[in-house]
């Protein structure tokens, strides 16, 4: 796989959408007795998507709403399995798609660090070793032993970010440019991401903010209706995107 850290070959994600909803046994049985088959339509969220990302690249993913950007990130993060095609990923992924996924609001900040850490695939011992640094970066301070239902939403997001990014990942996946916590924390988190980038992490970003894509990325993938419209260096693709799709802008 030479030096590609991520490689997708003809990846297709199709959702089966039934024309009529039959979510119960009861209705299913009635239909079966009446010998009425359920008809489905298939919706391709991603259609034959192929591209590769080299180690250390910073890749922006652009496209209008419903183009399949978030689905693509979920495929790479292995949340959704492709129906067809092949996905190859090398290295540990830090998905910043859902900060604090699985947080239990009745548990304390400390307990949630372990829970969220385990959800991200870390062992308990590994989290215990890094507990101090996570707590410090999150800036939660003395509230760490209070249930997180007492936290502000900014504090919850800060804690989630601190856990997800505590160790340097090989691949960092970011959905929308992070707006975590207050301005200070936003600066701090942006600094950390840049640091990881300089240290060799590969970064994938989905954003509608073309300026931040331009600043952060060297490569862009342009998706439209689940298809790759074009890929290439950031300036070329952004120009095409602005001209062809948004002539009015």
């Amino acid at each position: 796989m030479n030096n590609n850290i991520i490689q997708l070959e003809n990846v297709t994600i199709s959702f089966r959408v039934p024309h009529e909803k039959i979510p119960t046994f009861q209705e299913y049985a009635i239909r079966w007795l009446k010998r009425r088959r359920v008809s489905y339509t298939y919706f391709n969220a991603l259609n034959n998507v192929s591209f590769s990302v080299k180690k250390g690249d910073t890749v922006g993913i652009i496209g209008s709403n419903g183009a399949g950007k978030s689905t693509l990130l979920k495929v790479i993060a292995q949340v959704i399995r492709p129906n067809q095609g092949r996905l190859y990923v090398e290295g540990r992924i830090a998905p910043l798609l859902e900060l604090g996924a699985g947080f239990d609001y009745e548990l304390t900040g400390r307990e949630n660090i372990f829970l969220n850490g385990a959800i991200l695939g870390f062992s308990r011992k590994n989290i215990a070793d890094r507990l101090e640094s996570i707590m410090e970066f999150s800036g939660i301070g003395e509230f760490i032993d209070a249930p997180i239902r007492t936290y502000s939403s900014g504090m919850v997001a800060r804690l989630g970010f601190a856990i997800a990014t505590d160790t340097q990942p090989d691949i960092l996946i970011i959905d929308e440019i992070l707006a975590v916590g207050d301005t200070d924390f936003q600066k701090k988190s942006a600094k950390r991401i840049l640091q990881y980038h300089n240290d060799g992490s590969t970064i994938l970003v989905v954003s509608h903010n073309l300026d931040s894509i331009k600043n952060l990325c060297n490569h862009v993938i342009w998706l439209e209706h689940g298809l790759v419209k074009n890929t290439g260096p950031v300036d070329d693709i952004l120009n095409q995107y602005l001209q062809k799709d948004h002539p009015a802008d």
């Binding site: 292995q78 399995r81 492709p82 095609g85 092949r86 996905l87 190859y88 990923v89 090398e90 290295g91 540990r92 372990f114 829970l115 385990a118 959800i119 695939g121 870390f122 062992s123 308990r124 090989d170």
Partner: peptide, 29 residues
């Protein structure tokens, strides 16, 4: 470095078992 290749994924009944072992601390938590 962990590698994931959807083409080389072991059969599902085995894959899930190994994944659970990898995530055993989560189950316990």
């Amino acid at each position: 470095m962990p590698k994931y290749d959807s083409a080389k994924r072991p059969p599902l009944i085995i894959d899930e078992f190994f994944q659970l072992i990898r995530y055993r601390d989560l189950v316990i938590l």
